[in-house]
Structure formats: structure tokens, C-alpha cells
């Protein structure tokens, strides 16, 4: 049943213009970076800075919009013999999968025709993996918000705020903490703080992989010193997967009990 719902969802989303625009955006950007820089690892690093901002924003806004727009459709489907949990996963994968596919295609295709070396390929795959995970995480958060708030202005506003919080405000908070408590040993608290931010985790994961200490910032450096590269990556990965599971599960529970 999930497959049936998914099939028609995918057919619908794949025909829409915004998903094409989304893929083209990444395609053009990666291509342009290749033309400027040439080297695959550098392109991946530059792309990292873009995707860490763009993907959360795009996923959370598109996700919330999508669920608000399909509200009547969901009601209609729920009057047929469909179980709620089937419908939820159908809807979730129906948006998450096209977004991941569009982003991945946009990033990978320029790497193919520019003939990147093995090192650059690892960087590119790591980039698509992190980007995909962030996509799913933020679609999950947006689904929760759209199910929690019936008022779409409220839901979308909160989606924007959450996104800005994780991309910009959170760094400010960490800086503030470091500044305020500069006379205390701060490694552990700061590390814990960065575990609570999926975007930070994505950044740490990628920078540990690319081994770019210059871009790592305080949280990344602390991470590497404390755990070493391998352990640091595993911990970042596990926390990222937790981020993957928790918002979706909360949203899923809400969907099961919701009054439509």
C-alpha cells in the first residue's frame, strides 16, 4: 500500500517544475565551481557551504508547503480503506525521495563529466550523503510542524525560524557561550551543544572527512581533538541518524492521532 501511494506521489512530484528547478540549481552551481576551481575536492568543499544553508531551508519550506497543500488530498485518501501509517510513509517518502534524488543528481552529474579523481569522488559522495540526510531530517521537522499547527502561517513561520536558528542563531549562541564562560574549560559543553544541531553535525562530518582544519571552527576542532577523526565521524554520524529518526517519529505519532 505504501508503494502504491508512493508511486502516484512520485509521479506527481516528478512532474512539478520546482523539483526540476531544485535539481538545476545544484547542477549549475557545481558546474560553475568546477569551471572556476577545477579541483574536485575544492568544489565539494565550496558546495558544502552552500548545501549546509540551502538544503535545510529548501527542505523545511517545501516540506511544510507540500503538506499544507495536500491537506484536502490526505482527508480524501483517509476516507478510503487506507491505514494512517501507510499514508504517512507514502507522503514522507513521496517528498523526501524526489528531493534527495534531485539534489544528488545536481551534484553528481558535474563530477561525472568533469572526470574527478578518486579523492574527489569520496568527497562528492560524502557530500551527497550528508546533504541527503539533512534533506530527510528537515522534511521530517517540517512534517511535524505542518501536522502540529493547522494555521499555515504559523507553521511556515516557525519552519523559517527553526531553519534560521540552526543555520545562524545557533552559531551565535555557541560564540556567546564561549565568550561568556571563557575562563572555564568549555570543550565538553560546546561539543554537546554542537551535537544538538544537525547542520553543525553535517559540517563536522564533512570537514573531518575533508580534513580541513582551517574551516573547522571551534566545535570541529574540539571534536577531532577529543575523539580523533574516526571516532569523531562515528559520533557525528550516530547523532545525525538520531536527528533523522526523532522528528519523523514524533510527526508520525501526531499523524496517527490527528483530527483532520
Amino acid at each position: 500500500m505504501i508503494a502504491k501511494i508512493l508511486k502516484y506521489q512520485l509521479r506527481d512530484v516528478m512532474r512539478s517544475k520546482w523539483i526540476v528547478a531544485y535539481a538545476l540549481f545544484f547542477l549549475v552551481l557545481t558546474d560553475v565551481l568546477f569551471r572556476f576551481g577545477g579541483d574536485g575536492v575544492r568544489v565539494a568543499t565550496s558546495m558544502m557551504n552552500v548545501i549546509l544553508i540551502v538544503i535545510p531551508l529548501a527542505s523545511i519550506i517545501l516540506g511544510a508547503f507540500y503538506l499544507y497543500n495536500t491537506r484536502e488530498y490526505i482527508e480524501m485518501l483517509l476516507c478510503h480503506p487506507i491505514k494512517r501509517h501507510q499514508l504517512f510513509w507514502g507522503l514522507f517518502l513521496g517528498l523526501g525521495f524526489p528531493l534527495v534524488a534531485a539534489f544528488s543528481a545536481g551534484v553528481i552529474i558535474p563530477f561525472i563529466y568533469n572526470g574527478a579523481g578518486p579523492e574527489a569522488w569520496i568527497a562528492a559522495l560524502m557530500l551527497t550523503f550528508t546533504g541527503s540526510t539533512l534533506t530527510v531530517i528537515f522534511v521530517g521537522i517540517s512534517y511535524y510542524l505542518a501536522l502540529r499547527f493547522d494555521d499555515r502561517i504559523k507553521g511556515l513561520g516557525l519552519a523559517l525560524i527553526i531553519c534560521l536558528f540552526f543555520t545562524i542563531i545557533y552559531d551565535g549562541i555557541i560564540l556567546f557561550v564561549i565568550y561568556m564562560f571563557s575562563s572555564y574549560p568549555l570543550e565538553k559543553p560546546v561539543m554537546v551543544l554542537s551535537l544538538l544541531n544537525p547542520i553543525d553535525l553535517g559540517r563536522i562530518l564533512l570537514l573531518l572527512q575533508f580534513d580541513l582544519s582551517a574551516l573547522m571552527g571551534l566545535t570541529g576542532a574540539v571534536f577531532r581533538d577529543f575523539f580523533g577523526t574516526a571516532m569523531g565521524m562515528i559520533i557525528a554520524l550516530v547523532s545525525l541518524l538520531l536527528w533523522l529518526v526523532v522528528p519523523v517519529t514524533v510527526g508520525f505519532r501526531r499523524f496517527l492521532l490527528k483530527d483532520f
Binding site: Y8, M76, C79, H80, P81, R84
Partner: peptide, 28 residues
């Protein structure tokens, strides 16, 4: 959900996936 097999519902406001054709919606 089983009991809904015998139910037909015509909602007040209807929306279906925007990019599917009518034929596809019925098929779905």
C-alpha cells in the same frame, strides 16, 4: 480502515495531486 471499504465520500473541497491527469487520479 477496513470498514471504509463500503463508504463513499464526496468532500466539500476536493484536491488531488496537481500534476496527475484525471484518468490517473481515477486509476490511483
Amino acid at each position: 480502515s477496513g470498514y471504509r471499504e463500503i463508504i463513499g465520500y464526496m468532500p466539500q473541497i476536493a484536491r488531488y495531486p496537481e500534476n496527475l491527469t484525471l484518468q490517473e487520479i481515477v486509476e490511483m
